[in-house]
Amino acid sequence: MLNPLEQTIISLQLRVNGLPVQEDVPAQMTLLEFLRQRLRLTGAKEGCGSGECGACTVLLDGRPVNACLVLAAEANDAEIRTIEGEARDGRLTPLQQAFIEHGAIQCGFCTSGMVLSAQALLERNPHPGREEIVEAIAGHLCRCTGYVQIVEAIESVAGKGS
């Protein structure tokens, strides 16, 4: 029988935004809590805590996941990308720039997740159609913009480049 007071501590090794990270974490910690509380990467938000709103979305090995539903322990050996790692040397990515230009941000609560899901789509498929774009952000709630500007921002990047 397990001692109820005993907390499993997991020694975690992973890469976050390209940098190696090593930390001991309690089993109870979610990936979202790990990112926000231990690494102070607060771009990913906790909205619903049940995988419906998408505000906590980060990329795990290149794929969008709800960080509130992933145990930090399960991210051992993984490559995590958060919104903080997207801009390089103070330069926004074309997608981030497009969000600004299209007025696709209001309160900002959904934005980090939206950008990451859209970025993952564009990396998988550089020229998605409107339907694929809408599908890719279907796991994100935005209560401000009505989605149109967000879809247009992603479309504007999808149309460019090779």
Binding site: L60, N66, G139
Partner: peptide, 9 residues
């Protein structure tokens, strides 16, 4: 199923 994030996990 669910959302893209749920389908990935």
């Amino acid at each position: 199923v669910g959302t893209p994030q749920i389908r990935e996990r």
